[in-house]
Design a protein around this nucleic acid. Structure first.
Lengths: 160, 160
DNA sequence: CAAATATATTAGGCAAGCCTAACTTCTGTC
DNA sequence: GACAGAAGTTAGGCTTGCCTAATATATTTG
């Protein structure tokens, strides 16, 4: 009943996340699809899937499709959520272009502590619950990035 | 005259940064010090230093101390600055404890794009140039983290 | 200054994660 | 249903980065 304790490697995280992504997009998951998504050869995918099977995160019949187990689904969804949250943070908060945001999220999602990740979630929530959307300070930051100086003294958009 | 093109691996980045850190702290750099700092065996350090020598980032006499070349110094300082900036961001902006901030910075410093890194630098600069220090929104965020709700409607600390 | 100890190096091994090439199985079409 | 092409698998090799054990050099100390 106890879940596998050891965390899977960054590489395996990518494969597992990939399974979820392909599944959502195409309904079925083939070795070929994962190879394309992750830019590796099919044999590398097979090797990785073998390890994910050992950890009971996926099942796959010989020469068949790949399926996530319930636990694999949980893990994959958690990873995917991290990925998306980080992408949003880079793009929406820092104002980084979507492609770079995506790439950076992809790389660091494996390395950030749970604590820091959750704080970033809160940061986004904080911004979303601001009375003004986006809050004035964030608009100011984007102005600051664009014009290399702080915006002129604000005339609030919602004056009292 | 052209600098070595290929980027060094995350692992080598750690070793190179370690050389700078030990140098600043102790004046001289020994294999032993790096082994301790990076939690590896001396033989692993020797192996890594060999690669850094090939890339002309350090010099070392046989059985002697390690020294950074001018280029090695540049690279190491850049890495160290990334490290420190990320640590500050996690700690001062997100409010993560120092130890975790440090650890997370250590891990992701190798993976973040230059673009995103520089945007984080700007984000910190933006905060530092706010008329109020820390700016009210940031205090509100820290309140939000601590009390799990937004602070009561602000009575500005610097009313006009 | 010689022995003991500390430090650095070398040699050889291992795991992860990728690859190519050869082979097996599946699938769609005639 | 046979067979050609597509997809999956297996075998074996390579690199990185770590390790232990054995060896070489430096340094300290009696």
């Amino acid at each position: 009943m106890v879940a596998t304790t050891a965390r899977i490697s960054p590489s395996l995280e990518d494969y597992l996340e990939g399974v979820l992504i392909v599944k959502e997009k195409k309904g079925i998951v083939r070795v070929k699809d994962l190879a394309k998504l992750l830019n590796v050869r099919a044999s590398s995918v097979v090797e990785a899937l073998q390890k994910l099977k050992e950890r009971k995160l996926i099942v796959q019949q010989h020469y068949g499709y790949v399926e996530l187990t319930p636990e694999g689904t949980n893990v994959a969804k958690t990873l995917y959520e991290r990925h998306n949250t980080l992408t949003r943070f880079f793009h929406e908060v820092l104002g980084i272009d979507e492609k770079t945001s995506e790439e950076d999220a992809c790389k660091i999602e494996h390395y950030l502590s749970r604590e820091t990740f959750e704080r970033i979630v809160k940061f986004i929530k904080f911004i979303e619950t601001c009375p003004l959307d986006p809050p004035e300070w964030l608009s100011s930051f984007h102005y600051f990035v664009k014009h290399r100086k702080r915006p002129p003294k604000s005339r609030a958009k919602h004056p009292r």
